[in-house]
Computed example of a mutant assay.
Amino acid sequence: MPDTTTRALSLLNLLQAHRHWSGAELAARLSVTERTVRRDVERLRELGYRIESSPGAAGGYRLEAGSAVPPLLLTDEEAVAMAIGLRLAASQRLVTGPETTITALAKLEQVLPAPLRRRVNALAETVQPAGLNAGAAVSTEVLGELALACRDHERIRFAYTSATGQTTRRRVEPHALSPADRHWYLLCWDLDKDDWRTFRVDRLADVEHTRVLFEPRPLTSDEIEEFILVARSWVRQPVEADAVMALPLDRMQALFGQWAQGATAEDDGHTRWPVGGADFRETMYGLSWIPEGVAYTTDLAEPARSELRECVERMLRALDAAPPAPRRAESCPPL
């Protein structure tokens, strides 16, 4: 393969991997001059790739959508991930339904080398997403736009409808996109709230790219998981209650961290905190995280209130009773 063709393909791979590159960055990556980069960009344009260029210190190149879909370059890992994702998407609640994903999957697997096809088959059998097919339908177009914004660290704007039906316009720095417990969630830094926020993707619309890049704030995978877990807990639960604890709001927020979401000041010395779960046991688990020595009251309704009381009373009786006799050592059979 000629050097110019190899270099053009390398350039295309870079343009696909990131939303925006400066000419200097591309030249450094390819070990060529910026003039050569400009010539290679023209070659790609002649092949049907729509590449936008902008002058100036903040200028550069970006791959844009065109009137037709040009060929894509995929690494082995990207091809495997895409094939597995298409298999899962065919059975999930995506707006376009399974037909589109099945035809796309057929085209991709048709050209996969045999070793990669075996990897796809092995991994797809072990990946079992729990509960997603019972969740709200999500637009594949919106998911794609959010994924690009997360990848490229680009600020976006969108319309968001809350659980109460109120629609607001949000300006955010998207960080992570994650499926969890029947829904998709977007974790981002809310520029207006000056804090982290998690949004249900099925309640999100009119995504607008600002082309303003940002430096991602540090966040570990464990912290991301905790944010998503907190967001999942905001889905309406069969058993819900409020706990009013003898803690000022700021002190409660310092102790509870992200789990303090939804807490409000009852007065200067008390905080109201919503808690809930699938049954009284999960609600009891939430209440158990109220710090030791902090008095609280709860409006947990019947029948969960009586069920929780009966469970706690049995636990207290078990703790007050004499412990059971130690387990007897099993005798060894004679040789």
Rank of each mutant, 00 (worst) to 15 (best):
A89T: 07
E313D: 12
L94H: 14
T271C: 06
W21Y: 15
L108R: 07
P55E: 11
G286D: 04
A147F: 04
R19W: 04
E266P: 00
L143W: 01
L335M: 08
P115M: 03
Q166H: 01
G97M: 05
G23K: 06
A17M: 04
E154K: 02
G85F: 01
L74Q: 00
L73P: 01
V32S: 07
V127L: 12
R328G: 14
V235E: 12
L116N: 02
G269V: 12
W189H: 15
L287M: 07
E141S: 09
P216C: 10
A260N: 13
D202G: 09
T75C: 10
D242S: 10
A321P: 08
K107S: 15
L12R: 10
E223H: 03
A57R: 15
P115K: 00
S221F: 10
R93W: 01
E46S: 08
L47Q: 12
S91R: 15
A114V: 05
D267T: 08
E77F: 07
P238M: 10
R211P: 00
L73Q: 13
L88R: 09
G60A: 10
P303A: 07
A176W: 05
R305K: 13
E226D: 15
E225Q: 13
V120F: 00
L74T: 09
G48T: 02
A278H: 07
N133V: 13
L47P: 00
V37I: 15
V244A: 04
V69Q: 10
S53T: 15
G262M: 11
L213N: 09
R38P: 01
N133I: 09
G131R: 11
R118A: 13
L143S: 02
